[in-house]
Design a protein around this nucleic acid. Structure first.
Lengths: 198, 198
DNA sequence: GTCTATACTGTGATAGAC
DNA sequence: GTCTATCACAGTATAGAC
C-alpha cells in the first residue's frame, strides 16, 4: 500500500465517490464503498476528511466546476431558432448520454438541502446555474443582434426550470419522442421572445 | 400497548412515515424513526410490511392519491389569462405553504428510481401527473371555448416540467419574487397558445 | 393474530500503532 | 504523517412468546 499525501488521497476519494454515486446512487455511497473504489485504506478517509459531509461538499463543488458554460457554434447565417435549437439539443444530448450523472446532480442537491451545513452550497449551485443561463442568453442576444422581451433574470430562471423539469421527467419515464417535442416547443417559445434591435 | 389489526397498524405506519419524511427527509426515515413516531412496537413493522421498501411503496401511492386534480373557479366572464394565472397561483400557494411536503415528493421519486422494484411506480406517478395536467388543459379549453396551438401531450409535459423545475429551484433558493415572475411569464406563454374556436 | 426480545450486518468515527 | 484495529451505534429482519 503506497503512502501518498493527503491531497492526493483527497483527490482519489472525491473521484471515487463520484464514480460510486453514478453507479449506485448517493444514498448508497457509503464511506466504505468510496474507499474500496479508490483502493484507499478506510482509516485514510477520516484523515483526509473530517466527516462524510465534508467529502460530499467537495464532491458537489467538483461537479459544479464541471457544469461548464454551454458553448455553441453560432455561425453568422443561422437563424435565431437554429442557434437556440442547437444549444438546447447539445444540452439534451449530454443528458441522454449520461443519465446517471444527471440523476446524481439532483440527488446531491437534495442531500445538501437536508444537511444544515450544506444548504448554502445548494443555493450557490443554483446561483451558478442561473448565471450560466443568463450569460448564455446575453451572448446569444449580442450574436443575433436582438434583445429579449422578457427580463433576463426571469427568463434565465424560467429556462433553467424548463430544462431541470424536462430532465427530471425524462429520467423517470425515458420518453424520448415526447421529451424532444417539448424541448423543441421550448426552442420555439424562446425564439418568439427575440426582437431585432432597433 | 393496545393490540390493533394489521390494517390499522399499516395506516398508522404510513401516516407516521409521511410525517417523519416531512420533518427529517426521506434519507433519515428509518424504520425505527417511523415506529417511534407512530408509537407502534418495532416488531409490528415487519408483521405489517414485508420490508421498508414495501412501506415506501404504500407511502408513494398515498401521496399520489393526494395530488388531486387542480380545481379552479372558472367564472364565465374571466379572461383566459386570468383563469390560467389563478390556477398556477393556486398550485404555487400550496408549494409555499408546505415546502417540505413538496421536497419529499422529489426525494421519493429519486428513491424509487434507484430501487429496482419501485422504478415502475415512479413512472406511474409521472404518468399520473401528466394525466392531471392534460385533463386540466382540456377542461380549460372547453370552458374558454378555445383550442391549444400545441399538441396536448407536448403541452402537458412542458407544463409539468416548468412547474417541477420552478418548484425545485424555489425550494433551493426561496427567491419568492423571481419565482413568481417566472410563473407569471409561464401564464402569459400559456395564454398565447390559446386560439378561439372557429 | 399480534408483539417482545434479539440477532446480525453495516455504518461513521476514533485511539493509537507504525 | 499515515494507516490498522476497533468502537459504539443504527439499520433491517426474524424466531418464537403471548
Amino acid at each position: 500500500m503506497p503512502r501518498l499525501s493527503a491531497d492526493e488521497r483527497r483527490e482519489q476519494l472525491v473521484e471515487a465517490a463520484i464514480r460510486v454515486m453514478i453507479r449506485d446512487g448517493v444514498a448508497r455511497t457509503t464511506t466504505r464503498a468510496v474507499v474500496t473504489e479508490a483502493a484507499v485504506p478506510l482509516g485514510a478517509f477520516h484523515y483526509c476528511f473530517r466527516s462524510k459531509e465534508e467529502l460530499l461538499q467537495s464532491v458537489i463543488e467538483r461537479i459544479m466546476e464541471r457544469a461548464l458554460t454551454p458553448v455553441v457554434a453560432q455561425p453568422e447565417d443561422a437563424s435565431a431558432y437554429d442557434v437556440i435549437h442547437a444549444t438546447l439539443h447539445a444540452y439534451w444530448d449530454r443528458v441522454r448520454e449520461r443519465p446517471a450523472e444527471h440523476l446524481v446532480t439532483y440527488e446531491l442537491t437534495q442531500y445538501a438541502l437536508r444537511q444544515p451545513g450544506l444548504a448554502d452550497l445548494a443555493r450557490k449551485q443554483y446561483r451558478h446555474y442561473l448565471a450560466i443561463n443568463s450569460a448564455y442568453l446575453e451572448s446569444l442576444a449580442r450574436t443575433l443582434d436582438i434583445h429579449w422581451t422578457v427580463d433576463l433574470p426571469v427568463l434565465a430562471r424560467h429556462g433553467l426550470s424548463v430544462l431541470d423539469g424536462l430532465t427530471l421527467n425524462w429520467l423517470v419515464d425515458r420518453e424520448d419522442a415526447e421529451a424532444t417535442a417539448a424541448l423543441d416547443e421550448f426552442a420555439r417559445y424562446l425564439t418568439s421572445l427575440a426582437r431585432p434591435n432597433p
